Amino acid sequence: MSDFPTRRTMMVDTQVRPSDVTKFPIIDAMLTIKREDFVPTVQRETAYMGENLEIGAGRVILEPRTLAKMLDALDIAPDELVLDVGAGLGYSAAVIAHMAQAVVALEEDEAMSNEAQDALSAAGIDNVITHVEALKDGAAEHGPYDAIVIEGGVTHVPDTLIAQLKDGGRIAALFMDGALGEVRIGYKRDGAVSWRRAFNAGAPVLPGFEKQDAFTL
């Protein structure tokens, strides 16, 4: 039987801490949440590898370093409501739930969302709502949100999502340009978002977040 607790500690010690992630709630969540329970069964042995984990349909679970650094930059507070866009099988929502008041785990694949709900329930995590809807449309009925995390690559962020972010809120997105990408944190002030570069990373672009066709003159 695999020694998952040791692997979990190694993940934090070799992938998360060396990436300048020092906030206790993030470290604690990643040491506590059993990542192997939130991946496809055939992937359990690779759950703690330092790379994006494919979960089918061109989708991935972000590598631990990327997720940890995103959450570190967002600086989520214990009284905040967070929208987790592209929650997949629920790992990111489980981690965020450790530091936020509540999380809405948005997934457009109903089967994935059902698996996420089962895994979250089995882990005893009761402050996550799973919501099935197109990722680009968000989950307006539960918002507005203090913070939004997009669990995959984007080339643009739809206005529908920006509209669901509270004024004064933050959004983390991984902007891809070909094979290269960088995570930026957006800060909403007076209805508009200003973006600041945080760090380099990479992931497949999520459905609905591809480049919009540029119009020609």
Rank of each mutant, 00 (worst) to 15 (best):
S2M: 15
D3P: 00
T9R: 14
V21T: 09
K23H: 12
F24T: 12
P25W: 10
I26H: 08
I26L: 03
D28E: 15
M30V: 09
L31H: 04
L31Y: 08
I33L: 12
R35D: 09
F38V: 13
T41H: 08
R44N: 05
T46I: 10
A47W: 08
G58Y: 10
I61T: 13
I61F: 04
E63G: 08
L67S: 02
M70S: 13
M70I: 13
D72W: 05
L74S: 02
D75T: 02
Q101M: 09
A102G: 11
A105K: 11
L106D: 09
E107I: 12
E108D: 13
D109K: 05
A111Q: 15
N114C: 06
E115L: 10
L120E: 12
A122W: 09
A123P: 11
G124K: 03
G124I: 03
I125K: 07
D126A: 13
V128K: 05
T130Q: 10
V132T: 14
A140K: 15
E141R: 10
E141C: 04
P144N: 09
I148P: 06
P158Q: 06
D159T: 15
D167C: 08
V193A: 09
S194Q: 13
W195L: 04
R196D: 14
R196Y: 09
N200F: 02
A203S: 12
P204I: 10
Q212K: 15
